[in-house]
């Protein structure tokens, strides 16, 4: 294992608070929520594990707050119905073999709500959001009561929420920041720029 201090990016002489702060910052960066449905999720969870181990090593087994196993179970979202018709598709999506999943779906003649949902999931994993949104919407229309399809559509609206390092989050604003707010902010910023 690497030197735990260099993993956390702190000096060996750092105080407990500094270590905790560095740990929290890194844990926020590699948090599984930032890598949900992301093909690189396994790398992020490896990083997370490394950070947890480093923090535990420094604090000598103290409670870490972000348990190592708690966040390694990401990417299981498509495994809820193992006996369903599309079990093979779901397991292909989970293992990241999107081409195979798409191939099975294309060969299927029964294009029901689940078919549209799964094809949407394949496109979503690829980052093809306009296609994913189309298929998720059809799935929800065909089966409005299914919570899985509705949550997939809702998640897509707020998806891929990436961690932004301190000082790099200002451009998009919070979720309650409308386009008008951004324009107003830009106008203010522009006026400030002209003062110099």
């Amino acid at each position: 294992m690497n030197d735990p201090y260099s993993v956390l990016g702190v000096a060996p002489s750092a105080s407990e608070d500094e270590i905790k702060k560095a740990y929290r910052e890194l844990a926020r960066k590699y948090h599984p929520d930032n890598y949900h449905d992301n093909p690189l999720a396994d790398l992020a969870s490896e990083k997370m594990k490394e950070i947890n181990e480093a923090y535990d090593a420094i604090t000598k087994g103290g409670a870490s707050g972000y348990g190592g196993t708690a966040y390694t179970s990401g990417g299981q979202a498509y495994a809820r119905q193992p006996g369903g018709e599309y079990a093979a598709v779901r397991s292909a999506i989970n293992s990241g073999d999107l081409d195979y999943a798409e191939q099975i779906l294309n060969a299927s003649s029964n294009q029901n709500a689940e078919w549209h949902f799964l094809l949407g999931s394949v496109y979503f994993r690829r980052g093809w959001l306009t296609e994913a949104s189309r298929y998720f919407q059809i799935a929800v229309q065909l089966d409005p009561t299914n919570a899985e399809y509705r949550s997939a559509l809702a998640r897509m609206q707020s998806s891929g929420a990436a961690y932004r390092a301190p000082g790099f989050g200002g451009m998009r604003g919070g979720s309650d920041c409308s386009v008008c707010d951004i324009c107003t902010a830009m106008m203010c910023a522009d006026m400030c720029c002209n003062c110099f």
Binding site: N34, W128, S133, G160
Partner: peptide, 18 residues
């Protein structure tokens, strides 16, 4: 279109942090 652009932008950022 904005939604999908922001999504790709976010995926660029999360990949970069690795």
């Amino acid at each position: 279109l904005e939604m999908t652009l922001t999504h790709s932008n976010n995926l660029v950022i999360s990949a970069f942090e690795l």
